[in-house]
Amino acid sequence: MADQQRADARRNHERILAVAEREVAAHGAGASLEQIARVAGVGSATVRRHFPTRQALLEAVSSQRIEALCERARELTGTGDSRDALLTWLTDVVAYCVSARGLATALAYEADPTHGNSCAAAIEEAARPLLRRAIDDGAVSGEVTVAELVAVIVGIAMATEHHRDPAGAADRLFALTVAGISPLR
Rank of each mutant, 00 (worst) to 15 (best):
V144T: 11
D112T: 09
L87P: 00
R83D: 12
V144F: 05
E148L: 12
A68H: 07
I66Q: 04
S82C: 11
V140R: 14
A111R: 15
R133H: 07
R65Q: 13
R133V: 04
A108C: 05
G168Y: 10
W89L: 04
S62Y: 03
A73I: 07
E125A: 12
V93A: 08
H163G: 00
A151C: 00
A121G: 10
S63E: 13
L130N: 04
V94T: 02
D81L: 01
R101I: 08
D136A: 15
T88C: 14
L131Q: 10
A60V: 03
A126H: 05
E124F: 00
D165S: 14
V140W: 10
A127L: 04
R132I: 05
A157Q: 02
E75I: 06
A111P: 14
A157S: 05
E125W: 00
P129V: 14
C97F: 12
A151L: 03
G78R: 10
A139H: 14
I66E: 06
S82W: 08
I66K: 05
T114H: 12
P129Y: 11
L58S: 11
I123H: 04
T160C: 11
V93G: 01
A139I: 01
V154N: 04
C97D: 08
N117G: 06
N117Q: 11
T77D: 02
H115P: 00
C97Y: 06
V154C: 05
T79V: 12
A122P: 07
R65V: 11
L76K: 03
A104C: 05
G80H: 10
I66C: 09
V61T: 09
A104M: 03
C70Y: 00
A167K: 07
A60Y: 05
C119V: 15
T79R: 09
L76N: 03
E67A: 15
C97N: 13
A151R: 10
T105H: 07
E71I: 06
Y109I: 00
A126Q: 05
Y109F: 14
A108E: 07
G80E: 07
R65H: 14
E75G: 01
V94S: 01
L149Q: 13
S62M: 03
P113Q: 13
E59P: 08
Y96C: 08
E143D: 13
R101Q: 11
L69F: 04
T88Y: 06
E143R: 12
S141I: 05
R83M: 08
I135Q: 15
A122D: 09
A60T: 04
E161T: 14
D137W: 13
D137S: 15
A121R: 12
P166F: 09
A126N: 07
E71A: 09
G116R: 13
A108L: 03
